[in-house]
Structures are given as C-alpha cells and as structure tokens.
Write a protein that binds this DNA or RNA. Structure first.
Lengths: 334, 334
DNA sequence: TTGAAAGCGCTAACAT
DNA sequence: ATGTTAGCGCTTTCAA
C-alpha cells in the first residue's frame, strides 16, 4: 500500500489539511510546521495521488491530444511542440490516434472527456458534423491545431496556407512558367481543398494562366502514390513544365518518378513544395520549399489552450502563423 | 455540473450499484432493469467519470510512455505501435519526452506514477543508476522498448541489433571490401556501443580485416553531422571503400557528403545502413538497408505490458524481434 | 496558523 | 437480482 497524506499527517503530528497545504505550497503554514512536514514527506517517500486530487479538485492537469497519426512526421513534430508547452505549464498529455475517422474521433473525444481532461487539442483533415456537435457540447476548452474550421466555432491555430501556396506558385510564374501543375494531398483535407488549391488557382488566374484538365492531381499523400503521378502528367497534351507540390513527401516521390522517366529537376521541370520534414533537404537536388513551423504550431496551440483553461480572455481566436520560403535547388535562381 | 451515477439511479428508480453493474457489464442484472437503466444513461447523457472510477478501483486503464523525443521518426513509429495495442486493450497513453536526460527521466517516472498509471513503457539510450533505482522501486510493471538493459532487471523488447550489424557488414565483405568503416550514432546509446559496434567488429575480425584508426566514427545521429564525415574519412591514409551506417539519416547525410565530394555510390563507395524511416527509399540511389520493425517493437512492448499488468506469467522477459534486409541500390548485386 | 468534516463519483464487499 | 454502505486519497470550506 502506498503512503497517503494520512500517514504523513500522523507521522508529523499535524492534520491532513496541513499536509495538504504544505504539498500545495499554501503560504498559511508556519515555517517550522512546513519544515517538519516536508521532512516527513521526504522520509516516508510520500507522493500525492493525482487521481484522488483530480477527483477532489475537479482538475486533472491533463490535456487530451487527438491526432490523425503520430507516426507521420508532420504530427510528430507538431506534438512535440504541444508537449513542451504542456510540460512548461505542468500538464500531462493523453495522446490518441484517430486515423481521421469521424466515428473514432467521437469515441476518442468522449473517452478523453471521461478521463476528465482539462482541455483538448484536436487535429484532423476536416470537422464532420457529428464531431462538431460533440466538441461544441464539451465542457472543456478545445483548440484546433493545423485544422481548418469552416464554421469558426473553435479557437484555431494555422499556417497562412493560402498565402503560402500563392507565394509558391508565383515563384514558378516568375521563372516564366506557363504550365504549372498542382499535386496535392487528399481534398478531403480542408486545408488542401480550401487553402492550398485556392492559393494556386488565384496565382494562376492573376497571371492569366489557364489550368488545363489534369493539372490538379489529388494523391493520398504518400511517396509511392506521388511516384506514379508523372506517368499521368507526361501523357497530357501539354505536360507541365513546373510543379507545385502539397508537401515534400509528395514532391520527392514525384521527383523520383520524373528522374526515372529520364528528366531532370530543375532543368526540365522546376518544383516547389511545402516542407514538413527533413526530406526536402536530404534529397538531391534539394527542394525549394515553404517551410512550415510545425513545432510552433503545436506550441502556440497548447499555449492558447492553457489560457482558455485558465479562463483568460483571448483576443485572437484564430491564430495564423507565418511561413518561410527556403530557396534551394529545385527552382532555378534568377 | 455533469450527470453522475446518482442522477441515473434516481431517474431509473434503482440503486447506484445497479447502474454501476450495468455500466460495467456485470451479468447480474435483470434484462428489463438493464434496459431501463441503459435508456436513462442515454437520455441523461451520462458518461462515467474515469477519475472517480480510478480512485475507487485503483486502476486507471492508463499507461505511461516515456520517450526521448516523439518528433524523431524512430520514436514516432514505435509509439504508434504502442498506441494501437493500447487501444486494443482499452488503455490510454500518457506520453512524455525525456530528451534522454536522466534527471528528467526520473522526474517523469515519478510524475507518471503519481498519476497512477497501471504500467510504464520506457525508452532511452541507457539506464542510469538513479533511473534504475527509481524503476525498480516502482509498484507497477515497466517494459523497456528498444532500450538495452545491461543488468536484465526489466522486461525488454529489442531488435537483434548485433546480429543485424554483423549481417550488414558481411554483405559488404561479400562484395570483396577490405576497408569498411562504421559510422555510428552516439556511443552513449547502449545499442550503438554494445550491439551494432560489436557486430561490426566481430564481422571484421572473423574476416581477418583490421579496423584502422578513424574507421569508427561517432556522430550525433543527425543528417548534418553525418554530412561532414566524409571530409574526415577521405583524408585517412587508406580511406574506406565501403560504409556501414547506424541508420538511414546518417547514411543519407554521408552519401550527400560523398556525392558533393565528386564520388558516386555505389560505384566508388558502397553503403549499407539500418533503416528507420522513408528516407532510405526516397533518396537515389536507394539505400540497401536493415529494416527495423519499429511499429512491431512498440506493439510487442505494449502487449507484453498488458500481460504484466494483468498478472499473467510471462516466459520471455527479453523479447528479440527479427530484422529484415532490404536489398536496394547502394550495394552492388553480385 | 491549524483542524474537523464534508464531499468528489465511483467500486466493491456485504446483505438481503 | 438488487440495495446499502464503507471507503479510495485528496481538496476545500468552515470553525476555532
């Protein structure tokens, strides 16, 4: 049996209330008493039971994190940002994978609420109606990280995806390209459909460029799927001369497909992409990319959540983080 | 105020004990009663409070996972294996990053124990004496995943690292190489020092090959550090003609360094490495590698932990998982 | 500055 | 098959 607050109280000849005060740093304790109690805590190796504490105080100092798949570098990096800020504010994290399945997401939200988390960080491709309902009726604050919220129901932290996409495509346009394709991740992901694709379309449209049939390709976001894409692109009446890729895994798959077809990047095809991992820098040629601050995305989300959990007023419910362009070798320098 | 078991009991005209039985699937409930209670639960939107349940039952159905850094693909993949099996057995996971700092590790173990986790999965480069003491005195089962335990104090799940290293080096030897270098991650990691390095040395020794000064290089496990390594290697009196790398990130950094020095893999230098991520497959030439089943490593660790938490007898305290060699293009086919 | 006592919401004997 | 009751280990009034 573990040692409890009672054992310490008895040993120190004080009431359990006093021990509780000492443990919680309550100033209303005579220094002498505090010292005596602290000594007993030390001697007995007393460690407060966070579960009992949670039941009594109705706060668990635990937050839930629901992520599509922690094994993806995107979410792994983001989660590290969340975790570090959580540690800073003395929260623990319950981490669960949803695989973006709405039913599973609902299950997880309920599960986490049952565990009495003090707040929740949620990530997904899109918010289904049932998930939205579930989250609206939750009794703890919820922050969306890297996740689009069409209804603006929840506090959200995101990158300037649309602007970044617009920017990226314009880098290609500046190099005199007329035939620019967009190879995307799944359009079931709001950010792909509503932000990156729109940024691409606006840049093309403003430059007076058309987007022929087949220039917008939806992949499942994997290297292997992207590898096959060039085989389709090359058969187009007018194959693209430049490519904007939704992320670096897609870009690398595609680039290898291009290379294995006997073409060269950037001589034959120029490419730019969003960068989520080391990949963009590890391949040759290194990929010119929009660097996405994933760690910060997580950190800022968690910071926002601490404020919400603390009942603080938050002026910015929709936080947007800046991106950065890393000029490398898949786009020719002017 | 959330709805409690009392509210349901009152609403259904039964005792709270009966509600508890229904919630917990206890068979000693008349079907009619069960139905009535279930209806009330549904109507009131009752959700059991896991904290109260944990306090009363002394089980939280939560396990702690202490990982060096979740943003590293190695641990991200491994953690996904843990998480999936945890879900299967209805456990939640509290995930914390230690950065391998022993003081932080101890802090985290105590923190997790305070949260009353039912078990712990621990990962690190090495077990410090203080950490060992802390873990030995823990009152819940602890499994080490991908972590060497020199004292065999704890149940452990690992890959056959030494045998795999031995195997890898022999692939190079079979291609008639005499000058084979080993580029490793930090030797503060037991697995690098005690398993991979030993496998390398044994293979070399058995083949009657010497290991000249400078052939064993310790890196900090990063792409950038590895990139610089070739600059040192090339200046050796007899530079190596083949390289065994501790993982694919090292290998890719090194390979790019080699390429930027004007040499070609595998024509000038052949390479083999341990594979932890997509990297080995995404670069060109693709890297011949020892594929490490990280997901399985996590899954098996968690499965082992469930048995331990369940008080089941476990015959194998030291589980060793097989590896697999993926023949690709950084080693010439015979 | 300290103590007494009433919960927090549930499980798990024990009774019936 | 169902109900009663005593905790689980703490926080938090309220008194003193």
């Amino acid at each position: 049996m573990a040692v409890t607050i009672y054992d310490v109280a008895r040993e120190a000849n004080v009431s359990m209330a006093t021990v509780s005060r000492v443990v919680n740093g309550n100033p209303n304790v005579k220094p002498a008493t505090r010292k005596k109690v602290t000594a007993c805590i030390e001697r007995l190796g007393y460690r407060p039971n966070a579960v009992a504490r949670g039941l009594a105080s109705r706060k668990t100092t635990t937050v839930g994190v629901i992520v599509p798949d922690i094994s993806k570098s995107y979410y792994a990096e983001l989660s590290r940002g969340i975790a570090d800020v959580a540690t800073m504010y003395e929260y623990n994290i319950i981490l669960s994978n949803s695989d973006k399945r709405p039913l599973r997401e609902i299950e997880l939200i309920e599960d986490h609420l049952g565990k009495q988390v003090d707040g929740l960080i949620f990530m997904s491709d899109s918010i289904s109606e049932d998930v939205r309902k579930e989250m609206i009726s939750a009794n703890v604050p919820i922050v969306l990280a890297g996740t689009h919220d069409t209804e603006l129901d929840f506090p959200t932290v995101n990158i300037e995806n649309k602007k970044a996409a617009y920017h990226a495509v314009n880098e290609l346009i500046a190099n005199d390209h007329k035939r620019i394709a967009f190879i995307s991740g799944p359009f079931s992901r709001d950010i792909n459909r509503l932000a990156k694709k729109t940024g691409y379309e606006e840049a093309m449209s403003e430059a007076g460029l058309s987007i022929p049939e087949g220039y917008i390709v939806e992949t499942d976001n994997t290297y292997d799927d992207a590898y096959e894409v060039w085989n389709r692109l090359r058969k187009l009446p007018e194959p693209p001369t430049a490519i904007f890729a939704g992320n670096d895994e897609i870009a690398v798959g595609l680039m290898n497909g291009i290379r294995d077809a006997g073409l060269t990047v950037p001589d034959d095809i120029e490419m730019i992409c969003f960068q989520h991992s080391l990949l963009a820098r590890a391949v040759r040629p290194q990929l010119t990319a929009i660097r996405v601050p994933l760690y910060d995305l997580g950190a800022v989300s968690m910071r926002l959540l601490t404020k919400l959990m603390n009942g603080e007023e938050v002026d910015q419910q929709q936080v947007v983080l800046p991106y950065q362009v890393e000029e490398r070798d898949s786009v020719r320098k002017k």
